[in-house]
Simulated scan of single mutants.
Amino acid sequence: MTSHYFENALVKLHYYKFGNGPQSMLCFHGYGMHGKQFLLLEPALGSKYTFFGFDLFFHKETKLTDQSLEAVKARITKKQFAALIEEFCAYEHIDRFSVIGYSMGTHYVTAVVEELGSRVDEYIVAAPSSIYPGKLIEFFSKYKLGNKLLEKLVLSEKALINMLNLCKWLGFIDDVGRNILYKEIDTPELRFNLYASFIYLRLFETDEAQLIKTLTEYNIRSIFIFGKRDKMYPPSIGKAFFAKFKQAEIVILDEHHELINKNFVSALSGLLL
């Protein structure tokens, strides 16, 4: 594995390269994770793929050129993000590629497929919040009242902890989800990153009709992976979507939300090899 940077007017993007296969796989991690989240795939799939694991916006070493509150509120569009990916691919001499994302990362991969579907071979999403992010995330990211409330909350560690406990009590998240988020709010910088991660991607809402049209038109292999015991994004969130998109390959693992593990690798490599 090697560490790299790609820089343009928008961002200094940090990423890892691992594997040495002829096919390219762009990797988009979950909230609070980093570009090495899919490194587990290298032993099984590294001879088929070269993986590019990004540190996503407001995570680890990736930094926006302007990371002010005003810039975060200005947000980024899918087309702007697609342009960034096109620049990156030109820099790395990538023509066609596959994409894989987990949880928050599925919003990134879905935006890429919607905008650049003619270049995509495989679309792999695990704990796909892009299908249905949930009422809590929609409230904080899409609506002005939610935006303002979250902005106030990030100024107070105690308030955020109380909010997490309330969300757990209401059943919006389980113990696993609560603990993941709790680890991400213990400093002012991390609280800002939490806010920014909700707000910056507001315009990444999945266009379901466009996604299905693109997947179908370009015959993109589509794999959806769920954790049977995942209370945040259980298999049931895909019921309406899969009724419209029959070509989906659906995998349900006996896992909680944190499902990027050996079972995940075994199931995915069994499909891809």
Rank of each mutant, 00 (worst) to 15 (best):
K158L: 11
K158N: 13
K158W: 01
L160R: 01
L160Y: 00
I161N: 04
N162G: 05
M163V: 09
M163S: 11
L164P: 02
N165E: 15
N165D: 14
L166K: 10
C167P: 00
K168E: 15
K168M: 09
W169N: 12
W169D: 10
W169G: 08
F172N: 07
F172A: 11
F172G: 00
I173Q: 00
I173F: 03
I173G: 02
I173L: 10
I173Y: 03
D174M: 04
D174N: 06
D174L: 04
D175W: 03
V176H: 08
N179E: 15
N179P: 01
N179Y: 06
N179V: 01
I180C: 05
Y182V: 00
K183N: 12
D186I: 09
D186L: 14
E189V: 10
L190H: 12
R191H: 09
F192W: 05
F192E: 07
N193V: 00
N193Q: 10
N193D: 14
L194K: 02
A196H: 04
S197Q: 10
I199F: 01
I199M: 10
Y200A: 03
L201R: 09
L201M: 10
R202H: 15
R202N: 14
F204W: 05
T206M: 15
D207N: 15
D207K: 07
E208Q: 12
E208M: 08
A209M: 07
A209S: 10
A209P: 02
A209F: 01
Q210P: 00
Q210L: 12
Q210G: 03
I212V: 08
I212C: 01
I212L: 04
T214P: 00
T214W: 02
T214Y: 02
T216E: 11
Y218E: 09
Y218D: 03
Y218M: 09
S222E: 02
S222M: 05
I223M: 05
I223V: 12
F224T: 04
I225V: 12
I225F: 09
F226Q: 05
K228F: 12
R229L: 13
D230G: 08
K231Y: 12
K231I: 06
K231G: 09
P235I: 10
G238Y: 06
G238A: 15
K239V: 13
K239H: 12
K239A: 14
K239C: 08
K239D: 12
